[in-house]
Nucleic acid binder design. Structure first.
Lengths: 364, 364
DNA sequence: CTAGAAATAGTAAGCGTTTACTATGGAGAA
DNA sequence: TTCTCCATAGTAAACGCTTACTATTTCTAG
């Protein structure tokens, strides 16, 4: 098999599977060590030599083998992020923050999705561990199954032992003594604030709809909701809280069911904006006006919230910022949180944004 | 099971940076080769031995080093995808398809974003090449700058030479002879169909707004738009087409400007749904009713289209399917498209979905 | 001039796997 | 009993880079 394609042919000069550093070295008439140095630029190489090397590099279309490089000890320059679903705006915005900050710090970003499967989440952490990522960022609410927590804690330790770190983004701690970093947002506070706003408008019977049961995010939002109720001396009515899921479809179907049951309420708190969108649709379908007949609020302030009509009053969570902070923290040199409350946990604030979906209840 | 770190403590038994296969071999009293075989399961290993090995693996919390594995010749089992922006639903849905199909085929998925920067796009392809991904999927419209095309073609060849492949998703060919695979959707046809629909409703003066100039996607959509006009014998009026960008913000601001100019039109074709959303807002702001006063259509049918009020009539593009097909094609054994028109290019159909944003023009 | 310090290159030892070869111990065949 | 052939297990050579050492020039100062 003759090496036909002209020797100066840009990229496919070498037949095989891409040029290696040895090919470059040979072409430039130097040793591989020199090529390696010229490329990483952390060691003096004569100008003429360097130029010869770079010419060979472009001639051959050489790119370093990242695996060989990683193996040889250099860092992988990659951070991993594990989210529920790439197409869910809540996660997508966090992912965007992570991706941007990572690339600002010269890292690649390995994004994977669990589709809500806990086992898969554990497996993905291992996968990231195999990839030796500089950090793995775990996003979104977590289950509170103890077996699961224990397994995740094991992985956090393994990661820490390998010099990487596990950063929990918007999810609860794995317990004291587990080496993790955390960046969260004030879920409970936001839920409190928006519930309180509803109450201040005169609402007393507020429906809470959505969010998986036994899920940390749901728990915090509900906690804030209850705290606001308690603070104003309004009785908690179990008949008014309806957990389930975070999707738009859930909001729509559950709201329809609730409407059929003729429950007495004047406002609905959607566990997130998507659920609220579904709720709005169910209401619209029945000819119930928002906010005149019923007020509705959501959570997260994803872009769709301001696309809805009426525009949705909701709680703003600085998603992209959250992602950015996660990688900053991950890549910072601060040691892991091994003790009780170190400064390894960072909380970004939330605030309510008032739009058009709330008004005082109809004094029917 | 006591909670103290005994020597047999799961994961952090070894202090350093994670157990290696040699540690496992030692713990199990066998050679590394045997461990490797037991793990990959492609070579007979006595049952007792295998069990001993697996026990050591869990005891030590061992996970293989993916880099060493990749280096030693096994494939990387990773596909790379390059998109504009993780948070843009158009790309997010394609990414979801890619991610799902990849994981269905036992691959990881490396997602990166260009933020619309051509140079960065080129650099990202090289990055993927460094990672030796099994395939790289390049999504979204492309610039038609010849220098850029040449550079991308070089990379396509390099990838092909290395046994990987470049798959172009929703973007035009790099030219005959360049080894790529393609999966596209019928941009021109969808634009034709929806324009024709507008015309059939009686519209004659249709504004086209959005989409970067000199961009393949814009070109195809405009081509379909013009073809529909021509087919019905309606004169093309340059004053009616306004290229620019794909964002919601562009739709909003450009629509405002156009409204100030008091141009004569009865319908607006937004280059995509986001632009249409901006257009809708500008219209609403001026008290112009849709569809009574002006009809509006978009393109892509991202979820927000049905969240808008009125619900947006648009062109449905099977985004997730597109992503899935891209990885199927990428991983299939079919050779690259080296000739003219092979079956290496796959086109998924588009169709218009009629909702509430179009009606016959007001006979004012 | 000459010793010693730069500056510049080369040598070779890993990094953690996979896998082609080789070795060993029985089981069944002759 | 002796020889083959399996089933298993071990050895060691890549894979493509980085980097600690070592070697050779070339300056610079004394």
């Amino acid at each position: 098999m003759t090496e036909k394609s002209s020797p100066t042919d840009p990229i496919h000069a070498r037949g095989g599977s891409g040029a290696t550093i040895a090919d470059v070295a040979q072409a430039a008439g130097v040793s591989v060590a020199t090529v390696s140095r010229a490329l990483s630029g952390n060691y003096p190489v004569a100008k003429a030599t360097r130029e010869r090397i770079f010419r060979s590099v472009t001639d051959l279309g050489y790119v370093a083998n990242a695996h060989a490089r990683a193996l040889a000890g250099a860092t992988t320059r990659t951070v991993g992020i594990i989210i529920n679903d790439v197409a869910d705006p809540f996660f997508a915005y966090i992912a965007r923050g992570v991706e941007r900050q990572a690339s600002a710090e010269g890292r690649m970003c390995l994004i994977t999705a669990t589709h809500g499967d806990k086992e898969r989440e554990l497996a993905l952490v291992d996968l990231m561990r195999e990839q030796r990522t500089d950090a793995v960022i775990l996003v979104g609410g977590a289950s509170d199954d103890p077996r699961y927590r224990k397994q995740m804690a094991d992985r956090a330790r393994a990661l820490a032992a390998a010099g990487s770190s596990l950063v929990l983004c918007g999810r609860p701690s794995l317990g004291a003594g587990v080496p993790t970093k955390m960046v969260t947002y004030d879920n409970e506070g936001g839920a409190f604030a928006i519930t309180d706003y509803l109450i201040s408008q005169g609402h007393r019977r507020i429906l809470y709809v959505g969010g998986p049961r036994d899920f940390s995010t749901t728990a915090s939002r509900l906690a804030g909701f209850y705290r606001a109720l308690d603070a104003r001396g309004i009785e908690r009515d179990p008949a008014l809280v309806h957990e389930g899921a975070f999707g738009r479809g859930f909001g729509y179907s559950r709201m329809r069911e609730l409407l059929d049951q003729e429950i007495d309420f004047t406002a609905v708190f959607g566990a997130n904006d998507l659920v609220a969108a579904g709720i709005l649709e169910a209401l619209e379908e029945r000819g119930i006006r928002v906010p005149q007949d019923v007020s509705v609020v959501g959570y997260d302030d994803v872009p769709v919230a301001s696309e809805l009509r009426p525009r949705l009053t909701t709680v703003r969570v600085p998603l992209e910022e959250l992602g950015r902070e996660a990688v900053r923290l991950a890549l910072s040199q601060t040691p892991h949180d091994a003790g009780a409350s170190s400064d390894n946990t960072l909380t970004v604030g939330t605030h309510i944004v008032i739009r058009d979906s709330v008004s005082p209840p109809n004094k029917a």
